[in-house]
Amino acid sequence: MNPIKILVAAKRVVDYNVRVRLKPDHSGIATDGVKMGVNPFDEIALEEALRIRERGEASEVVVATVGPHEAESQIRSLLAMGADRAIHIETTRETGPLEVAHVLYHLVQEIEPGLVILGKQAIDDDCGQVGPMLAALWGRPQATFVSKLTLEGGRAQAVREVDHGLETVEVDLPAVITTDLRLNTPRFIKMPDIMKARQKPLDRRPFENCGIDLPRLEVEAYLPPPERVAGLRVESVSELVTRLRDRGVL
């Protein structure tokens, strides 16, 4: 099989260690001064692409991001991880999964990758939609929630983490793959690679030039979820069982 190109889509999100809070007026999420990072599932996607390239099965790994100007810092870290080049579709407004899928579809037509790999969901909006939406627009098969991936003879074999266990599927290439947590552990970035990443090509394009005008969900309100409060400390196992019986759950 000839080496393929791989497109990896990555999103800038609030760092996964940050406990997010609402703005005091509940108009949105408080992001001022909050640490940002790459969506962890997308880092796994890049790591997998790099491993495929290192096995000689891919010739180039391109990273694409749709997001604000500040996302350049996340893009640089993805380049430092090992992506060959990056495309930054810049926009100041929130974009929905359908819009991002259309942007990626434009890029797919331009790059003609053999694989698109991206996270199964972003940890901010938890939508989990972009991968299958892109596969639909492209008319290509998909393997979602993937925890193991091998390529052979123009096909990919993927192990998917589904509700009832591990499902193995085979998809023709090109295909869209979305990553689950156990696919791999992303590498650490080394200092010299950060320096080198500054020289790698980064192609900036305004989102407005993509000519995308699509329906998207309107968020009418942001609300704190109902809180659970700490209950009772029991002193012994027998007290525990008695209390559970009193609550009618045993």
Binding site: L98, G128, P132, A135, A136, V162, D163
Partner: peptide, 23 residues
């Protein structure tokens, strides 16, 4: 919102050009 639904419905949304409300 099973693994079947989370795999399939976003794909249909892409085909229909409609946004999807997950979960």
């Amino acid at each position: 919102g099973t693994s079947f639904g989370r795999d399939l419905l976003p794909r249909l949304a892409g085909l229909l050009g409609a946004p999807l409300v997950s979960d």
